[in-house]
Nucleic acid binder design. Structure first.
Lengths: 196, 196
DNA sequence: TCCTCCTGATTGACGCATCAACAACCTTTG
DNA sequence: CAAAGGTTGTTGATGCGTCAATCAGGAGGA
């Protein structure tokens, strides 16, 4: 199984080595065994779910996870056309990240970029027919996969508990400072389609 | 908030566009609103927790997340020295990934590599004094951060529910095929120190 | 011994994310 | 109108992960 890193053994070793800080001071310090199991389970999920989703998309549709997210975002828009910055906000990404990705996706013929008529700085991102057919073909398999790995193994009560826990942790992260990319985005409603 | 991609609206649009597959056939199809909330919450966590942990480490200790994991793994070993392949297995990583990372870490003076005496192919990875002091200095802040964002906002019952949900999803992923890197690893016990 | 096969580890190419400039374009203000 | 300042988006450098190819060392069989 994976290495741990949050409990007491190596702390003792660390302090024995003479560099650790005061053992009893500061916060609650190391995780107890029960907490450690929680953390390991969560970290394991973190390390496996996203790659698994990406793999499924790549294998079945030739799309990377981020590419799917962009296509899905566009496909959900009534206009089928979104300002670059708006898309970045909807996705909770930085402009730079989206720009790099859009360049690659444009080269693949998945999306098209055009200067916005009303604001010369803006870029309108639109789905090409290719992109349209790719996302439409990819979505059902993606949703099936999510259903299979996330929803099928959990009871509705467990699902709700998971949602609540995720919310609480996300909130704690946001109020802890160390975030900008994901947290800056608006908390408006979001589309309803083949969400990545 | 983020784009969705797993529910019905864009499906309708997709099918209206004439490329979607049979609407009523196949599996359970799109997520309902409740499920969608669960999925969005989970995905939000996926997108925010790992980066937040990485940021904290980078800011407070100048370490990347993976670097911390490697140092922690080494610091937990009684010998303070681990075979490269063993470490890869403990971390649930591919050899290649670890090799690239070790090269960079060696350049920074965090770890040292030496050929294994008994098996000429093997590499013994050891903590340098620098690496030792870096991990010892980094661990408390890392654990504090994990405690603050994951454990403080949850009741013990919620923590257990989270653990259970993570386990179930991870299991589903593993039995769904699309994984190798994380899942190949042994499920033996794991260390106890400053787990990343 | 020599050949084959397996395993351990490295390398190079590529996709992707982040950060720090930078360029282009509004918009506000004097 | 013109200068200042804020947006919007792009670019280049760098770090990181994956994949496929490769090299080096060890183990078993003729």
């Amino acid at each position: 199984m994976e290495a741990s890193d949050t409990t007491a053994a190596s702390a003792a070793r660390a302090e024995a080595a003479g560099v650790g800080s005061d053992p009893s001071a500061d916060e609650g310090r190391w995780l107890n065994p029960r907490e450690r199991e929680v953390w390991l389970a969560l970290r394991h999920l973190l390390w496996s779910l996203q790659p698994a989703v990406d793999r499924q998309l790549q294998r079945d549709s030739g799309l990377s996870g981020p590419e799917y997210s962009v296509l899905a975002t566009l496909s959900e828009d009534p206009q089928g056309m979104v300002r670059s910055g708006t898309a970045a906000q909807m996705l909770g990404w930085g402009r730079s990240r989206l720009s790099h990705l859009l360049r690659r996706m444009e080269a693949k013929g998945l999306i098209a970029r055009s200067c916005s008529p009303d604001d010369g700085r803006g870029q309108d991102i639109a789905l090409t027919p290719t992109g349209q057919s790719v996302i439409v073909a990819a979505a059902p398999g993606h949703v099936d996969f999510v259903r299979k790995v996330v929803f099928d193994p959990l009871t509705p009560e467990q699902q709700d508990a998971l949602r609540e826990a995720c919310h609480r942790i996300s909130t704690a992260i946001e109020s802890s400072g160390s975030c900008e990319p994901v947290c800056e985005g608006a908390d408006s409603d979001c589309g309803e389609g083949p969400t990545a």
